[in-house]
Computed example of a mutant assay.
Amino acid sequence: MLDDTDRRLLRHMLADPALSTADLAERAGVTTATCWRRLEKLTERGVIGARQAVIDWRRLGYEVEVSLRFTLDKTDPRAFDEFLEAAREVPEVIGIETFLGRVDVRLNVIARDMKQYQEVYRRRILTLPHIADIEALMLIATIKDAEALPL
């Protein structure tokens, strides 16, 4: 699937996503044209989804991050769809994940402070449809946050 050149390109890209194609090629030890072709193939195959900015929400004044785990009332066959549709409309929700098991959905919510979080929780989160149970986990510290795979 991946050869050594692909792995080198991906390792360097993960280490510094802002690298230009020329700089990435130099670090991986290939020509710029080879690098570009390889990146195109990896993108076409879905290995590379997108290059994206990683935003430090705390530096923008968001001091509270809460992970909310939901169990949904699945007696309505549209429960998942309706919940997810409504959750996407909450601007403070920065992540939505679905699971198999006791927890159905997890929302990651940010707020500037506890007062704003309480407001979002009461007015936006508790009004989401089909909630059977909620568990809140407040983020204290992120110890490791790596999307890199051992390539």
Rank of each mutant, 00 (worst) to 15 (best):
I110Q: 02
L107A: 00
I96Y: 07
P91V: 14
I134R: 15
A136Y: 12
V105C: 05
L100T: 09
N108E: 04
R112V: 03
R122W: 13
A136S: 15
D133P: 00
R106A: 03
R102E: 12
V120S: 06
K115N: 11
V120N: 06
T127Y: 02
F99V: 11
V105P: 03
L128V: 00
T127S: 08
I125A: 05
M114E: 13
R123G: 12
V90G: 03
R123Y: 13
Y117T: 07
A132Y: 14
V90F: 00
R112L: 08
V103N: 06
E97P: 05
I96S: 04
V103K: 01
V109P: 02
I134D: 15
L100K: 06
T127N: 01
T98A: 10
I125R: 01
N108F: 11
L128A: 03
M114N: 14
Y117N: 05
I134H: 15
R112H: 13
R102G: 14
V105T: 11
R123P: 07
L137A: 15
E92V: 11
H130L: 03
P91E: 10
E119P: 02
V105L: 04
V90T: 00
R106Q: 11
I131F: 04
V109S: 02
R124K: 10
M138F: 08
A136T: 12
E119A: 11
R106K: 08
P91W: 09
L100F: 09
E119K: 09
A111P: 10
I110Y: 02
L100M: 09
M114V: 08
G95N: 10
R102F: 09
G101V: 00
I110G: 01
P91H: 12
Q116S: 08
L107M: 00
V90Q: 04
L107K: 05
R123C: 04
K115C: 09
E135C: 10
M138D: 13
I131M: 07
I131V: 13
I134N: 15
I94K: 06
T98D: 04
P129F: 01
Y121S: 11
E97H: 14
V109W: 03
R106S: 09
G101K: 05
